Simulated scan of single mutants.
Amino acid sequence: MSTRAEVFSPAQNTAVWLSAWLCGHVSTDDVLSALLDLGGPHTFHDEPVTELLRDIRVATNLADDGPAVRLILSGPGQPPELPAGSVSALALAESGSAAIAVRGYAGITHVLIPHYTPEGTTWRWCEEHDRLPEPAWLSPGEADALLSHATEEAAVLIRATGGTRADLPNPRLTVGSLADFYDTPGLPMSTTPRAAKLFARADRVAAVIETVVDKLGDHSFDPQLFSLWRHIRTARMAGVADAVLNYQRAN
């Protein structure tokens, strides 16, 4: 099982870039460049990604309250915030653990599901007419506090058992380089500092887990570390919601 697949998806930054573009904060060229960095060439029904952007622009309802774009992440102990047994839930199970939900008109939600491969990203589009399950709607501060508390609890448990091995020449350097990877290619300049801080903390915790489990190959603390996955995913979803709301208010 890959740790990275459980704690990170390019869909996080993709959702932020799409929201910034929909609200007029970045240009089409900017979002196309970001998408290329985030997942290589993107296609939609064998059409270029510009067709996908055009359809998203037409379908998105920015007028109603609440974030028009939501990041949906799922994993062990955290089912996706999609109707159980729905077309979108089944499609997500086939493609991975990340989706982007876009609020449409007349109560429709458009669920965009990326499938990432070494050759690029292909997108699947599903429509849900039933209301999606409500997320936790945590503020960035609440999500940050929960992640910080869970991280400290895990650290206390690990220290109590003597700490992890240090087989790498410089585990701290590995953590730093992985955190830099998670942040690439960055976020639009207009992203709220609160969201950016939350993403950075999630990146840091994810990098620590990957260093211990995948790079050091130490599975002694899997229960403590794996319990953080849900908090990392929740923090990422809360950060996207905050960024999206800010874009909409400034639109």
Rank of each mutant, 00 (worst) to 15 (best):
R4C: 04
P76C: 01
D144T: 07
R159A: 02
K197Y: 09
W21P: 01
A91S: 03
L35A: 06
M237H: 02
L132N: 02
W123P: 01
P118A: 04
L198V: 06
E152L: 13
V16Q: 12
G85N: 01
N61C: 11
T14E: 12
W137T: 11
P188V: 04
V240S: 07
A243K: 03
R4M: 09
D37G: 12
L173E: 12
Q78V: 07
L38V: 12
A238G: 06
C126F: 06
A89I: 07
S190W: 07
D55T: 13
R124E: 02
G120C: 05
A34I: 09
R204V: 05
F181A: 10
K197Q: 05
D46T: 13
G24M: 08
P133Q: 07
T14A: 12
L35F: 15
D130H: 08
G107R: 10
V240C: 11
G217S: 00
V102M: 15
D144A: 11
R201G: 00
P133K: 06
W123R: 02
R194K: 11
A5C: 07
A93E: 11
H45P: 10
D37T: 05
Q248S: 08
T211N: 08
T50N: 12
R159V: 00
V7K: 03
S148V: 09
S227A: 08
T211I: 10
V31M: 11
E134C: 10
A154D: 05
G66R: 09
I232R: 01
S139R: 13
T211F: 13
L198Q: 02
S97M: 15
W125E: 03
R204M: 14
N13R: 15
V175R: 09
L112W: 14
V240E: 08
P188Q: 06
L53P: 01
L73G: 08
I108F: 11
T121R: 02
T109C: 06
M189G: 03
I72G: 03
T161L: 12
A145D: 13
A150I: 10
T60V: 15
E127M: 04
G107Y: 15
P79C: 08
V240Y: 07
C126Q: 07
T161I: 08
I108T: 13
A155G: 01
D55K: 15
H219T: 01
D203F: 15
D46E: 15
T28P: 00
R204D: 09
P188L: 03
W123T: 00
D203L: 09
V7Y: 07
K215D: 11
E81D: 13
I113K: 05
P48D: 14
A243D: 04
S2P: 15
M1V: 13
G186P: 00
P133N: 05
V156L: 14
